[in-house]
C-alpha cells in the first residue's frame, strides 16, 4: 500500500479514526505520519490522545451496575430521546450527542464527571446573563431560606422576620423576571 499523503513511499502506519460515527482510515509513510502527527499535536484543544484516555477511563466505570432486577430481565439500555445516543455509545466515543444526554445519563454521570474534574461535580463559574438570568436570584433565595431555617431553630424570630421579608422581595423579583419583565 502506498502512502495516501505523498503517493510516493510505502505506507508504514495505519490509523483508524471515528468522526460522527463514521470510520475513516489513513495510511501514511513514516515521514508523512510524523508531519501529520506534528499537526495533531499543535491542536491545542483535546487531541486524539485525550479521546483514547477518556474511553479508557470511562470503561473502568461499570456502565450497568448489576442490580437484582437486571438478573431477571434484559438489561435496559438508556437512550437519549433527543439524539438517540445510548449510554454504551457515549462510553465508547467519550462524547455526548446533545445537551439532553446530560439529563438522560444523569444517574451514571456523576462518578465519571467527578473522576475527570478532581472530585468536582458542580459548576462554579460564569452564568450566562440572558439564559441563566434568574439563576443568580434562585441561588440567593435558596441560600436565604437555609439561613431562615437556622434562625428559626435558634429562635431568633426578629431576625427571621427580616430574612423572610428579604426572601419575599426576591421572590417577587423572580416572578417579575419570569413574567418577562425587563
Amino acid at each position: 500500500m502506498i502512502c495516501q499523503e505523498c503517493n510516493e513511499r510505502p505506507a508504514a502506519l495505519h490509523f483508524t479514526n471515528y468522526t460522527n460515527g463514521e470510520k475513516t482510515e489513513m495510511h501514511l509513510c513514516e515521514r508523512c505520519a510524523q508531519e501529520k502527527g506534528e499537526l495533531f499535536m499543535m491542536n491545542q484543544g483535546d487531541g486524539f490522545s485525550i479521546n483514547n484516555l477518556l474511553a479508557g477511563l470511562l470503561n473502568i466505570e461499570p456502565a450497568f451496575p448489576k442490580t437484582k432486577q437486571s438478573t431477571f430481565h434484559q438489561e435496559e439500555v438508556i437512550q437519549c430521546h433527543e439524539c438517540s445516543m445510548t449510554f454504551p455509545q457515549f462510553v465508547k466515543i467519550g462524547r455526548f450527542g446533545c445537551a439532553n444526554c446530560y439529563e438522560t445519563f444523569k444517574e451514571h454521570l456523576s462518578p465519571i464527571i467527578r473522576r475527570l474534574h478532581s472530585g468536582n461535580a458542580k459548576h462554579n463559574g460564569k452564568i450566562p446573563k440572558r439564559i441563566g438570568g434568574n439563576l443568580h436570584l434562585r441561588k440567593k433565595i435558596e441560600e436565604l431560606k437555609l439561613n431562615l431555617k437556622d434562625l428559626i431553630s435558634q429562635e431568633e424570630f426578629e431576625q427571621a422576620a427580616e430574612m423572610r421579608d428579604q426572601i419575599r422581595s426576591l421572590e417577587k423579583e423572580l416572578t417579575d423576571y419570569q413574567g418577562g419583565g425587563n
Binding site: R95, L109, H117, H123
Partner: peptide
C-alpha cells in the same frame, strides 16, 4: 445549573 456550559466532551464541561 449543575454542570454549567454543556460540552460535547465531558472533560470540558463547566
Amino acid at each position: 445549573e449543575q454542570y454549567g456550559y454543556l460540552t460535547s466532551c465531558p472533560t470540558n464541561v463547566g
